[in-house]
Structure formats: C-alpha cells, structure tokens
Design a binder for these strands. Structure first.
Length: 220
DNA sequence: CTCTCGATTACCT
DNA sequence: GGTAATCGAGAGC
C-alpha cells in the first residue's frame, strides 16, 4: 500500500487553515459525559509546545472512561492519589505511567467531583514531525504516534504534565473547530478485562495512524 | 512490607 | 503471534 501518497492526501484534507481557524477547547467542552467528549475529540488537535517547537497532532483514536459505574476505569474503586485528576476539574491532563515503560495521556471530563477521562490513543502528525522523530528515533512515520505510549513519547509528555490545565495556552492544550465532522467507528476498549460490554473506543475508520483495526467489532 | 499485574511497546521467531 | 522489559499503584497481610 502506498502510504506516501495517502499521507499527502491527509495533509491536504487536514489543511493548514483547519488548525489556524481552530480555537482552544473550553472548560465547557470537557464538562460533559466522557463518551460524548470522546467522540467529539476525534478530529481535534493536540498542541504541545516544547521550547521553541510546536508539535501538533490530529486525534484519530480515543477511549472513554468513567467512574464507579465503569469497571475498566482506574477510578472504579474510588479516589486514590493516582486517580485524583479524574475526579477533579474537567479539562485537565491525567498522565499515568504503565507497564514500567510508558506514559498515557488522558483529558479529564465530567463535572468536578464526578470521575471521567478520555484516553488519547492515536494522533496523525500535523506539525513538528521532525521533532517528533527526534523523540522517537528509528521508527517509520506511520509508527510515530499510532499508540497511546507512542504518542506521549513523540510529544514528550510525561508525569511532569500531569494535572496541567488544558484550557490555557501553555505547554499542552487542545484546539478544534465545531465544524470538524469526521466518520466515527467504535469498538471494545483495548487492553482491558472488565467492562468489555461497552463500545467506548472511538476512531476514524481507515486512518492509517489508528493503532489497530478490529476485525470484528464485538457486539456482546 | 511484599506481591501482583497493568488503559503497552518492541523485538524475536 | 509470542513474550520480555520495567516500575509503581494498589491491595493484602
């Protein structure tokens, strides 16, 4: 498959003005149900400022997590030191370390006091690809941000950014347009053993930066 | 204090 | 497609 051509098409589809026209996502955007926010995050932009570099990726895959009613969520058993951000004000980063190697980046949702977050699972590079490649040497462009641990490495996101306010124009924030309309596919969330009855993983079907394509969309 | 195992990735066959 | 790497959160004693 000729991904080189595909990437050119994607760049044109995303277009520079889509990012330019976008505005920073507000508190109100995040202060809704996790599933709603998750779907609407597809097509939005993650912006990471590292020194003089601006790294931007378009969100193509997410997963919604909730609280006491979601057995797959870190927040299922209540508030702990780690899960504090999930219970706090919406629109903050929840960054956690997993498998001894990787960081995962979530945005917090739901109103203050109610647990919720959306895991950002994959991005399509839009700006700063060369810098991303410096953070992730020796991997092909298609592998640069096509997984939750991969994109945090490419964008230099670690626990230093945990709890950061994403509605402010700082080192990490999100931008988007209301007009962004993208196709949405869903599936079971990946890497969980409980809560598999919910199809709370959402992705842009056919986008080559999606971490994996489910052969069957579980329907149990 | 100790033990288990994870919202993963990379590298091997 | 199988599995080692790697470490800290959270649970249990």
């Amino acid at each position: 498959m000729d991904y080189g051509l595909y990437e050119q098409v994607q760049v044109r589809l995303v277009g520079d003005d889509s990012l330019v026209k976008s505005s920073i996502l507000s508190r109100a955007f995040y202060e809704r149900g996790s599933v709603t926010v998750a779907k609407e995050l597809l097509g939005k932009f993650v912006v990471r400022v590292v020194g003089r570099n601006r790294l931007v990726g378009r969100i193509v895959e997410v997963e919604a997590y909730r609280g006491f009613d979601d057995p797959a969520s870190h927040a299922f058993r209540g508030i702990t030191p780690r899960t504090t951000p999930m219970f706090g004000e919406p629109g903050h980063a929840y960054v956690y370390f997993t498998y001894g190697n990787h960081y995962c980046f979530n945005v917090t949702t739901e109103r203050t006091g109610v647990a919720g977050a959306v895991l950002i699972r994959a991005l399509e590079p839009v700006e700063g690809l060369n810098v991303m490649k410096r953070f992730r040497p020796h991997v092909s462009t298609l592998e640069i941000t096509n997984g939750p641990g991969k994109l945090t490495k490419a964008l230099c996101i670690d626990k230093a950014l945990n709890k950061i306010d994403l509605t402010k124009c700082g080192p990490l924030f999100l931008r988007g347009n209301d007009s962004e309309r993208v196709d949405i596919a869903c599936s079971v969330r990946i890497g969980i053993t409980a809560g598999t009855d919910r199809l709370w993983r959402f992705f842009v079907p056919g986008n080559p930066y999606v971490s994996r394509f489910e052969r069957k969309l579980s329907r149990t």
